[in-house]
C-alpha cells in the first residue's frame, strides 16, 4: 500500500494529488448518472486473454433491422484474425448468449474458432440456440451454465422457394454441414444429435429438443457444467499446456 502511494506521488510531482481528487469527484457522479455504477479497478494494460461476446442474432448476409441486437460477422472475423496474429494474446474466451441466426455466418465463425492456433474456451450463458451450438462446440473446451439452454432443431429457410425438391435438397445439405461440424467437434454421436434434432413433443408444435445445462453435458455436446471461474481456470491450464508443448518442440 505504502509503496504504491509513494510511486503515485513520484509520478505526479508538484502537489498534483489534491487537484486530482477534486476532479475525480464530478466524473464519478456523472458515471453513476450514466450507468448507475462506478468504475471497476484497472488491471495492467495488456491482457493475455481476450474475450468475444456473441450475443443476440448472428448477422450474416442480411443486415437485420436496427432494433435487433446482433453479433456481426464482419466484426468477429477480423477480430479473430487479429487475435491469431497478436503474440501477446495467449487465449480466447467466448461468451455465448445467442438465439441463432445466419447459418453460413455461424459456421464461418465456428470454423475460424476451431482452426485458431490458440486455446479457446466457450461458455454458454442463458442460451446458445441453433447456430450457437456449432460455435459453442468449436472451442477447445466448452462450458455451459447450469441454467443455460441450447435448442437443437432442423434448419429452416425464410425466403423464396423456387423448386420444392431443389430447396429441400439444399436445406438437407446445409443441415448436414451443421451436423457434421457439431459431431466432429464434440463428443455427441451423429445418431444422438439427429435424434435430438428431430424429436417430437419437446418443443411446442415444433420438432427439436431444448437441452439444459447438465443434459448438454450428458449427451456429450458440451464438456462441462460451469461458469466464469471454471472457464478461466481451464483456459489458463490450456495456455500452460500449450507453453509446455512449445518448449518441448524447441528441445
Amino acid at each position: 500500500m505504502n509503496n504504491n502511494f509513494i510511486r503515485n506521488d513520484a509520478e505526479n510531482p508538484g502537489g498534483a494529488e489534491p487537484q486530482k481528487e477534486e476532479k475525480s469527484a464530478s466524473p464519478l457522479i456523472e458515471k453513476i448518472q450514466q450507468l448507475g455504477q462506478t468504475n471497476v479497478p484497472q488491471l495492467s494494460a495488456d491482457s493475455k486473454i481476450h474475450c468475444l461476446t456473441i450475443v443476440g442474432q448472428i448477422e450474416g448476409h442480411m443486415a437485420l433491422p436496427p432494433q435487433n441486437k446482433t453479433t456481426k460477422y464482419e466484426h468477429i472475423i477480423p477480430q479473430l484474425v487479429a487475435i491469431e496474429q497478436n503474440p501477446n494474446i495467449e487465449g480466447l474466451l467466448i461468451i455465448l448468449n445467442t438465439v441463432g441466426g445466419d447459418v453460413e455466418a455461424g459456421l464461418a465463425i465456428s470454423e475460424m474458432l476451431a482452426t485458431l492456433s490458440k486455446p479457446t474456451v466457450s461458455i454458454v450463458l442463458g442460451g446458445g440456440h441453433s447456430i450457437g451450438v456449432p460455435i459453442a462446440v468449436s472451442c477447445t473446451y466448452s462450458f455451459i451454465a447450469e441454467t443455460a439452454t441450447m435448442t437443437i432443431h432442423p434448419i429452416r429457410l425464410t425466403g423464396l422457394v423456387i423448386g420444392v425438391p431443389a430447396t429441400f435438397e439444399y436445406l438437407d445439405k446445409m443441415q448436414e454441414r451443421v451436423v457434421s461440424f457439431v459431431t466432429k467437434h464434440s463428443k455427441i454421436p451423429e445418431e444422438t444429435f439427429k435424434e435430438l434434432m428431430f424429436a417430437k413433443g419437446n418443443l411446442t408444435r415444433d420438432i427439436g429438443t431444448n437441452v439444459i445445462g447438465e443434459e448438454a453435458v450428458k449427451y456429450g455436446l458440451i464438456d462441462e457444467v460451469g461458469g466464469l471461474g471454471h472457464a478461466m481456470k481451464k483456459l489458463n491450464e490450456l495456455i500452460e499446456l500449450k507453453k509446455d508443448e512449445n518448449k518441448g518442440l524447441i528441445q
Partner: peptide, 18 residues
Amino acid sequence: VLSSDPQHFLNDQICPGA
C-alpha cells in the same frame, strides 16, 4: 464497445453511456 480486449471494457472513458 466492440473490442475483444476485456481491458477496453474497464476504460471509463469509453464505457457505455460515456
